[in-house]
Design a protein around this nucleic acid. Structure first.
Length: 483
RNA sequence: GCCGCUGUAGCUCAGUCUGGUUAGAGCGCUUGACUGUGGAUCAAGAGGUCGGUGGUUCGAGUCCACCCAGCGGUACCA
């Protein structure tokens, strides 16, 4: 091919924020999903799946405009000119589903759902443009028992995934308490922009500390890189009051709304205590905000407490791995009818990322297939037959399908992580035998100095058996390496 | 979006400050020593638009400008 052709070829590359998923990761994720599913099932939730694509207007607030239809969400036009989008979470599709099937669903409706979601935004460490969420929601229950249960579910799930107690925490807050605070400091609830600015500032408490939040509530803040963030411009006295509130352990309530929120948290606390979920698992934290305009009552999030480092040993923060709360307005968007709902979402991709970084996630090493070497090309049928015999004995096996010689076939088997290979050349065929070579045992041979021991091990690692004993012999080798 | 850092072989990087013949290392890859036998050892080999474009210069991986990409922070985050 000429150079000109080369420049016309597409570059093999992956869009940013998106990743190929290797065999190992598929196995790890699959294992994780099964564990989560087991816990969710045990809580009585019922599975549901919905498509990756929804009508954009059903997804909510990110309606594509003419110029930038893909802000935040990936969107495209159907051939009937209607906007479609890739879902950006599993909650909006749930709301659509409930609204669409309201009559026939048992109320409260409790479902779990797992699947990829997409966000068209800048990726960061532990932040991707496609990631997997695992959600559980209860729709049609206004009792905070539903909320409390989700917090317990979050804690139970993390422990089931191997996060030791004490290395995570589920933090619980309540938007009503914050609303009470806003009321008491005279923040007009119509002034949403200031409202949001204050909420955002509070949300950053754990990251920026008290002084950072103070700056954001006041004139604004400059970060280490020199970027400047505009503040909420509150009076010093009001700032003190807000800071006093979010740093308090007491959750003091202000006003009628605040009192309502406090009562809800007290009720949740009672439920936690009754089921023996102590402060080492679930903790009240006034700075938990989440979702800004979205949540209407209790809000919760879980995070990993152990410090997480990147490849270079630099500390990185991946944020919360589970988040949720009560949203009483979502279904109403469709039906006009108020339907109370509460849910949590586990960031599976992020959690897996975090657990892997912590090294606390043990991936079960998976073994490659037994490889039947092809030495005499004209006897492929024989090799295929041996392979089938192994498969029928429930042994993962394959015949070498490449074109290369024996050495390359051995390398191939090695790379595949094969426990052993089956060898039958002309000599063995004449004797009606096959050779079994144990690659795992064989790998230990090079380190043996003592000649006698070496020979002994080598005889163990590779041996001949009658053709009829093939399956039996392979089984014996496999059993050597069972964990 | 804003700020900062980094772009040299498949990977990790040296070389850039102080411009000068064919641009290096380790790992990986291919082949061979090796008997029909992976992993060890030794040897050979393949592999590079030095992120891109323009400029300065007799001469640019090296200096300058702009652009692009990646990473990190920050903003936004249902």
């Amino acid at each position: 091919m000429s150079k000109k052709d080369a420049s016309a070829r597409p570059e093999a590359r992956l869009p940013k924020g998106l990743f190929d998923i290797s065999a190992q990761e598929i196995r790890a994720t699959g294992e994780m999903l099964r564990v989560i599913q087991g816990v969710f099932e045990s809580y009585g939730f019922e599975p549901l799946d919905t498509p990756a694509i929804e009508y954009t207007d059903a997804l909510g607030k990110f309606l594509p405009d003419q110029d930038r239809p893909n802000e935040g969400v990936f969107s495209f036009k159907d051939d009937d000119e209607q906007w479609l989008s890739l879902r950006y979470d599993l909650t909006a599709p749930l709301a659509r589903y409930v609204a669409e099937n309201y009559q026939n669903l048992p109320k409260p409706f409790r479902r779990y759902q797992a699947g990829p979601v997409w966000r068209n935004e800048k990726p960061g460490p532990g932040r991707f443009r496609q990631f997997t969420q695992f959600d559980a929601d209860t729709v049609g229950a206004s009792s905070v028992a539903a909320d409390a249960e989700l917090c317990m579910l979050a804690a139970d799930t993390l422990e089931a995934l191997g996060v030791p107690r004490g290395q995570y925490v589920v933090k619980v807050g309540n938007r009503k308490i914050l609303d009470g605070v806003f009321e008491s400091i005279g923040l007009n609830s119509n002034d949403t922009s200031k409202h949001l600015a204050v909420l955002r500032a509070i949300d950053k408490l754990d990251r920026l500390g008290v002084e950072g939040v103070r700056a954001l509530l006041g004139k604004g803040r400059k970060d280490e890189s020199g970027d400047y963030t505009k503040g909420a411009n509150l009076d010093a006295k009001v700032i003190d009051s807000v800071i006093g509130f979010v740093t308090s352990d007491e959750l003091p309530a202000r006003g009628a709304i605040g009192e309502e929120g406090r009562a809800e948290l007290a009720e949740m606390d009672r439920l936690f205590k009754a089921s023996e979920f102590g402060n080492d698992r679930v903790k009240f934290d006034p700075s938990v905000v989440r979702g800004l305009e979205y949540y209407t009552g209790p809000v919760f999030e879980a995070e990993l407490l152990a410090p997480i480092k990147d490849e270079r040993g630099q500390l990185i923060r991946i944020g919360s791995v589970v988040s949720g709360g009560r949203y009483d307005g979502l279904v109403e968007r469709f039906t006009g009818e108020k339907v109370p709902a509460t849910g949590i979402s586990i960031g599976v991709s992020r959690l897996l990322f975090g657990l892997q970084r912590l090294g606390s996630y043990k991936e079960s090493a998976s073994q490659g297939p037994v490889v039947v070497l092809v030495l005499d090309r004209d006897r492929i049928a024989d090799y295929q037959k041996m392979t089938q015999a192994l498969r029928q004995a429930n042994i993962r096996a394959e015949m070498y399908l490449g074109e290369s010689g024996m050495k390359a076939q051995m390398k191939y088997a090695d790379k595949r992580g094969s426990p052993c290979v089956v060898i039958q050349g002309g000599d063995e065929k004449a004797k009606g035998e096959v050779q079994i070579k144990d690659l795992i045992l064989g790998a230990t041979l090079t380190s043996i100095e003592n000649r006698e021991e070496y020979l002994k091990k080598q005889a163990e690692a590779q041996f001949a058996v009658p053709e009829t004993d093939l399956v039996e012999a392979v089984r014996r080798v496999l059993s050597r390496h069972q964990a």
